[in-house]
Amino acid sequence: MISVNSTPGGIEVSGYQIVLVPVQEHHLDLLRTWRNSDFVRQQMVNTQLINEAQQGAWFTKLKTDSSQQHWVVYYKDTPIGATNIRTSDNTPVSEAEELAPGLYIGEPKYQGNIIAFAPTLALYDYCFDYLKINALRAEVKQDNIAAMNYNKKLGYREVDRKDMVTLMVDRESYRADTTMIKRFLSR
């Protein structure tokens, strides 16, 4: 379903009509614009505006941090959003048994569109089939009903509810719950 290629910038993942391109320096202005938009920011745990210097420090750290990977989502050669995976304990992604994914669609035209599932499917296939992890863990704000519903379509089940709601999905649940949507996005 997906193809995974090693590039000078990192791992590139293609499938379900989209390409996940490792974040590079030339993406930073666009990423910061998206990240600071009201639509994206209000979904974040940290809702503060990010300035260029903060982002630069983040990007510098990213280059040597094996516990997280970040991509820009391309649809029809156009960047539409960003996605990432990270471990919770600084274990390298390549050695993780569990990962926390993140995604936002920054391009307004594609927010609330069915295409929002495509980068997630590509990313989760990569996590389960290539990285061989056991489970994905998502933390969602209690009032973010859209994210809650979105995650449940992917097979997530709620495992804890405090300030944030914790959801988890394993390979079997993910596969079972995404069969139909994969079929439609793989024609």
């Binding site: 069915i114 295409i115 599932f117 949507i181 439609f184 996005l185 024609r187």
Partner: peptide, 25 residues
């Protein structure tokens, strides 16, 4: 999203077509 997939199936059956992924999106 789930209803969207059901809708696509319904439209394909009713009108005897097979939609491209781009059209589904």
């Amino acid at each position: 999203s789930t209803a969207h997939m059901v809708l696509i199936s319904e439209l394909e059956t009713v009108f005897d077509v097979m939609l491209d992924t781009d059209d589904i999106i």
